[in-house]
């Protein structure tokens, strides 16, 4: 049976684009481009932009890879291309 590989690849790409957008927004957006306005806000002793650059972004990165793992597992099974 010929598998729907085009459909699978499209699903994969759209997941990648979503996750990479979050990646770019947190690292380059919140931590670099908008760091100055965010630094005006404070949570405890942390200016928020500074916190994202030195803490927050890293936590988000970890979450992104695990989300990717679980979503891909589901997509692989839906299209029956898992190992």
């Amino acid at each position: 049976m010929k598998k729907d590989l085009t459909g699978y690849w499209k699903k994969n790409l759209s997941l990648l684009i979503t996750l990479l957008s979050v990646w770019a927004f947190v690292s380059f957006g919140l931590s670099i481009l908008f760091v100055e306005p965010l630094n005006a806000i404070r949570i405890a002793g942390f200016p928020v932009g500074f916190w994202f650059a030195q803490q927050g972004a890293i936590y988000v990165f970890v979450i992104l890879i695990f989300v990717y793992y679980f979503r891909m597992k589901k997509i692989d099974e839906d299209f029956d291309v898992q190992e």
């Binding site: 803490q55 890293i58 936590y59 890879i65 990717y68 793992y69 891909m72 898992q82 190992e83």
Partner: peptide
């Protein structure tokens, strides 16, 4: 497997993150 490669990248970053959030 491919799935193990994805999961392994997740674990790797998790352990790396313990270190990299302590450094600052």
């Amino acid at each position: 497997s491919v799935r193990a490669a994805r999961l392994s990248a997740g674990y790797a970053l998790l352990f790396i993150a313990v270190f990299y959030t302590t450094a600052p």
